[in-house]
Design a protein around this nucleic acid. Structure first.
Length: 376
RNA sequence: GGGGGUGCGCCACAGUUGGAGAGGUGGGCUGGACUGUAAAUCCAGUGUUUCGGCUGAGUAGGUUCGAAUCCUACCACCCCCA
């Protein structure tokens, strides 16, 4: 069985479960570190295992396709062998780049023509091509090729885009049905719900996605600038429609507070660049609040970065030292902060899971929420 | 000891051939932003103010309607000669 739903909160929607892939199990709710170009930036694979305790990481089709290119990944025997991470991998389809590289692309029925940000060369991603590349990369979970409309978008555009994503999904499902596993292990396709901030479009999209009966489902098109209440409302709405017995993946979310709110609404999987990007910019998350290490107030603070961190670097080094590293733009600063933030995110979802299993989630969340959002 | 050169804002550099500029670029510093990674990136502020202004080009004088610019002295630093 791909997904085992172990427990759903009494008087709630939060769930704990286990996803089983050919590269290992994932205990949900889970946060998935983003490893765009074959590495979680600033973090070694060894540190992903310990102290971070990552259970699955992301790779990105757009970036890996452009560099190193699929032939090299095929030679290596897939991304797992190439980068030495033997746990589960999820690959994004390139759909997000359809959104983020807006200036350099053209969206048509067949697919998306875009220019490489590296050398300007022109390429076409279609649903079939995206899946083919993802098969070569070798992710355990692969994503349907979608369009992620910007915020704000008109209802008209969002609806058109949603239907295009649905038609592309049909092609993805068909391509997936016909293809054999490239490296001998299973690759599970997740469709993506779109529909912007429009409740009725979201309902329609959820129903369309659900009837495709794929192993898991993703909620896309959020955390693109919409008001936070929209994000929570749409997430809740989608979770109410998407099947209980399959994992729900909220793409691109989010802050620690976002994770708590969306776990409460029934999301099982998250990914976000925030912990790693902000780490490289000197911002770290702790159970007591958010620390901007660049702020002068930490210059003389010789106490541990975070005495309760699951990262030994954060327990053993001082805020003053870490601030110095960040300030001096020493690579080690970004590395320690990245390990710190991911350790915290994985700790947070691990705690959430424990409290769901014990039916103490609501009280724990109420206690954590104000703390994790606070600026120290 | 003699000769030459250069001095402005936290720093460096550039620029100013008598018509001001609280100016340029870079750095530093102080904040802010960052949500399926074109991001170890980007943005803003960085004399003072009661928001009208005020003070300001090493220091002190001078020439001039007007000086960062020309002159004199001094100070500091750099170079060359002894």
């Amino acid at each position: 069985m791909f997904f085992e739903l172990e427990h759903t909160l009494k008087n709630g929607s939060a769930r704990a479960g286990t996803i089983t892939t050919d590269h290992g199990q994932i205990q949900t709710p889970i946060f998935m570190p983003v490893g765009t170009a074959g590495t979680v930036k600033c973090v070694h694979q060894h540190e992903l295992l310990d102290p971070i305790k990552a259970q699955i990481i992301l790779g990105n089709t757009y970036h890996l396709y452009l560099r190193p290119g699929i032939s090299i990944l095929e030679e290596a025997g897939g991304l797992h062998r190439f980068n030495g991470w033997s746990g589960p991998i999820l690959t994004d389809s390139g759909g997000y780049q359809v959104y983020s590289l807006a200036a350099n692309r053209k969206i048509e029925e067949e697919g998306v023509t875009f220019r490489s940000h590296i050398d300007g060369s022109e390429h076409l991603f279609s649903p079939e091509r995206s899946l083919e590349i993802q098969h070569y990369i070798g992710g355990d979970i692969i994503m349907a090729f979608d369009e992620c409309p910007p915020y704000p978008s008109t209802r008209e555009y969002t609806e058109k885009s949603m239907h295009l994503t649905h038609r592309w999904l049909d092609r993805c499902v068909e391509y997936q049905r016909k293809s054999a596993p490239k490296y001998g292990y299973q690759q599970h396709l997740f469709p993506i719900v779109q529909g912007g901030s429009f409740d009725d479009l979201r309902r329609q999209s959820c129903e369309y996605i659900a009837q495709q009966d794929q192993p898991g489902n993703a909620i896309g098109g959020l955390s693109v600038g919409e008001p936070i209440e929209d994000m929570y409302r749409i997430t809740q709405l989608c979770c109410e429609i998407l099947p209980q017995e399959k994992p729900r993946y909220l793409m691109g979310v989010g802050t620690p507070a976002n994770l708590l709110e969306c776990i409460e609404r029934g999301v099982d999987m998250f990914d976000c660049v925030l912990p790693t990007r902000n780490a490289r910019h000197g911002l770290i998350y702790t159970a007591e609040g958010i620390i901007n290490l660049r702020n002068q107030k930490w210059a003389n603070d010789h106490s541990p970065v975070d005495i309760n961190s699951t990262s030994p670097y954060s327990r053993n080094h001082s805020k003053a030292y870490l601030r110095h590293l960040v300030h001096s733009k020493e690579a080690l600063g970004g590395m320690i902060c990245s390990v710190h933030n991911l350790s915290f995110f994985l700790w947070l979802v691990g705690q959430a899971r424990e409290h769901i299993l014990q039916d103490t989630f609501a009280a724990w969340k109420a206690e954590m929420l104000p703390k994790v959002s606070k600026r120290l």
